[in-house]
Design a binder for these strands. Structure first.
Lengths: 217, 217
DNA sequence: TGCAGACTGGGGGATCTGCCCCATGGTGCC
DNA sequence: GGCACCATGGGGCAGATCCCCCAGTCTGCA
C-alpha cells in the first residue's frame, strides 16, 4: 500500500490558506504516515488547471471561489487532463446550487472551511485510496434544501447580465436579440425563482449562490 | 527587549486559516525568535471579543468577514476592553469603504489574504513593538480610488432596503413615510453613485462594499 | 412521426421607475 | 439672521418594468 508517497497540488486564492494546507499535508503522521508531497500551488483557476496538466498529481485540493475560473470549471478541466487525480474541494460557501453542481460533477471529497479540520484530516487518506466523502454539513444541505430550479442557458446568461446592472434594452443589444425575448427570459427567471422584481431577483440569486459573487469583488 | 514571549488571539471563521496562522505565529524564528503564544481562537466576532476581554492579549489577528460581528465592530469593541492589544486585520476583500473604515478606526496592521505572506511575516514584529503597517496593496487602493460618496443615514437605510429586494412602496411602508420621500432618497443615492437604475445601484454597492455582503450569505 | 422544451418575437396594459419641477420644516454653522 | 443640508411630501411624465396573451422555428427524444 505504501509503495510511494502521495503528491498533491493546492489551489486557493489566499496565500495563508495555501500555507496552512501545505503544512497539514506535509506533516508526517497527520494525514499520511510519511506526509503528502505538495508539488505545486496555484492562486487562480487557470494556473490550477495548468499545474494539474503538468504534474498529474494524485490529489488536487481546490477552493471554489478563485479568480479566472471557479470550482466546477476547474474540476471538469482537471479531470479532462488527468483522470486519475482525486479532486477534493474545500469551500466556505454553502449555497445549494454550488454544492449540488460539485457533487454531480463527481467531486471526490467536499469539506467546509468553516467546520473543524479533523473531519478533513480523517477522511483524506480514504479518498486518496478511492473512497468518496461529502461532509455531513453538505449532505444535510442537499437533503433538506429544495433543489433550486434548473435554469436554461439563456436564462443563466440573462441573469448574469441583470446582476451586472444591465437593462433589458442593453441585454437585447448585447445578445443581438429582441427586447421582448429578453423580457420573456427575465419573466421565466422570476417565475422559477418566485420573485416579482429585479431587486428581489438579485437578492435571491446572491443568497442561493446561483451566480458567482466572487468575480464582482 | 525579549523580556517575555508575545501572545495572541486568532479570529477567523475558517478553521483551516486559524490552523495556518497558529502554525506561523508559533513557529520559532519565523516571526519572533521564540514564536508567539496563541492563547485562544475564535470562529465568530462575538467570541473574538469575549476572548480579548478574558486574555487581554498583545495581538488580535482578525478576519473581517465573520458571523455575528464583522471587522470594524470587533476592532472598536476589542479596543474598549483591552487598549494595549495590537489589532491586525487580514482580509480577502479590497473594497475601499471597508479599508478606509478600518484605517480610520485605527487598525495597527492591515494585510491582504490574497497577497504573499512574507510581507505579513516581516512586518508583524514591528507592529508588536508599536509600529503601524498598512499593506501597499491597500495603500494604493486608498490613494487611487476616489473616496466613495458620503451617504446620509436615510440614504444608507434606503440602500440596504433596496439591496434586500424591497420596492419603493415596501420601503415607504416599512419606514412609515411617503413613497415620494423614498423616491427622493433613491434618486439622491443614484446621483451620488452615478448610476441610473436599481440594478446598477445594486451592482455598484456590492462592488464598492458599501454594504455588508456577508450577512446575505 | 409526433411531442416537449428552448429560443425567438410581437401586442397590450397596469404598474413602477427615474427624474424633473415644487414646497415646508428642522438643524447646525458662520 | 442667513445659509446649507437633510428629511419630508406632492405633481407630472417619458420610459421601463412585469406579466398576460399569441405564434413561429429548431433540437432532441421516445
Amino acid at each position: 500500500m505504501n509503495e510511494q508517497r502521495y503528491n498533491a497540488i493546492i489551489a486557493d486564492d489566499h496565500a495563508i490558506v495555501r500555507a496552512g494546507l501545505k503544512d497539514a499535508l506535509e506533516k508526517p503522521g497527520l494525514i499520511e504516515p510519511d506526509g503528502i508531497c505538495v508539488l505545486a500551488e496555484a492562486g487562480d483557476g487557470l494556473s490550477a488547471i495548468a499545474e494539474v496538466r503538468k504534474h498529474r498529481p494524485d490529489l488536487l485540493l481546490l477552493d471554489v471561489s478563485m479568480p479566472m475560473a471557479g470550482g466546477v470549471e476547474v474540476l471538469v478541466e482537471a479531470r479532462r487532463w488527468s483522470k486519475e487525480t482525486r479532486v477534493v474541494v474545500l469551500t466556505g460557501i454553502s449555497a445549494v446550487g454550488l454544492v449540488s453542481d460539485l457533487v454531480e460533477a463527481g467531486v471526490d471529497g467536499l469539506f467546509s472551511k468553516a467546520s473543524d479540520n479533523s473531519e478533513f484530516y480523517r477522511k483524506l487518506p480514504g479518498i486518496l485510496r478511492g473512497q468518496r466523502h461529502i461532509s455531513e454539513h453538505f449532505q444535510k444541505i442537499l437533503e433538506e434544501t429544495p433543489r433550486p430550479p434548473v435554469l436554461t442557458d439563456r436564462e443563466r446568461q440573462t441573469l448574469n447580465m441583470i446582476l451586472s446592472g444591465r437593462s433589458n434594452k442593453e441585454i437585447a443589444e448585447g445578445f443581438g436579440i429582441s427586447i421582448k425575448t429578453v423580457d420573456k427570459h427575465r419573466t421565466s427567471l422570476m417565475q422559477k425563482l418566485k420573485v416579482h422584481s429585479v431587486p428581489q431577483l438579485i437578492a435571491r440569486a446572491l443568497k442561493e449562490g446561483l451566480i458567482d459573487p466572487s468575480k464582482e469583488l
